[in-house]
Design a binder for these strands. Sequence first.
DNA 1: AAGACGAAAGTGGTTGA
DNA 2: TCAACAACTTTCGTCTT
Length: 303
Amino acid sequence: MEEIIECPECGSTHISRDYSRAELVCNDCGFVIDEDIIDHGPEWRAFDSDQREKRARTGAPMTYTIHDKGLSTVIGWKNRDAYGKSIPTRNRAQLYRLRKWQARTRISNATERNLAFALSNLDRLSSSLGLPRTVRETAAMIYRKAALKNLIRGRSMEGVSAAALYAACRQCHVPRTLDEISNVAHISRKDIGRNYRYVARELELKLMPTSPRDYISRFCSELKLSADVQAKTLDILREATNKELTSGRGPTGIAAASLYIATVLCGERRTQREIADVAGVTEVTIRNRYKELTKKLDIDIIL
DNA sequence: AAGACGAAAGTGGTTGA
DNA sequence: TCAACAACTTTCGTCTT
């Protein structure tokens, strides 16, 4: 079962694990939910995917397309032994049983193989997106559930695994846009979206609309912005949410606009173009949003 | 010359008859 | 199933620093 942890203090689900201090901390109010948690992660640290590749001691198997490299045993249908002599009737029953179980295990291997392929695909996608382990596990779990409910039938395995990853990202509050996943998965955004909606509906995943807040830390680090800007952006977002300026708008657009305002206010200005690029929206959208925000929130911007 | 601005037309997805 | 619709994009000419 998935564990959705809620902060007992403020009800937020923005929970992070601080392994250096072995604490489970609420990101919104700072409440320490649990102490002395166990770190199941590797003992080494990696700061980018390059290092991770060098330090990881395990990896994908040489080939996962065929689990046994095509060496699986086949029992012939003829009632003859290896010398061509016919098998005595008293041994025939045993032979039938052998055939039956051989067939059964091969079928089970086929679904297992399918699952193994999907999971390695998930691993490949999430490592090229630099996603944390928890997201990968959530995605794997979603895919397993989908496979169990026969939701893959008639759909491409790649499509469903990409959708599972997208859902996992949202569930873990580290959202990636459909475009970002589409880029590494080589599947159109439309297909991922369609599969995602289908899987989410069938598995009854309860997913809240993505909050702009979840994007801020990633955008900030990609733009090499200070913690001041990050804090300021979150302030703006909080006010904007209070005044209901965020509903009905794309969360990335809101995030980009408030980030833009914060950079100007903090004197660490980035161009609309730069922010638009990392946020995956256009300059026009940033302009529209930030005009709205500055007007409604009475923020003066000196350019 | 780069960046910001905003109008206008186009796109893809949702909604409601 | 189709048209209306809102959000967002694309494109482009103009203004500002």
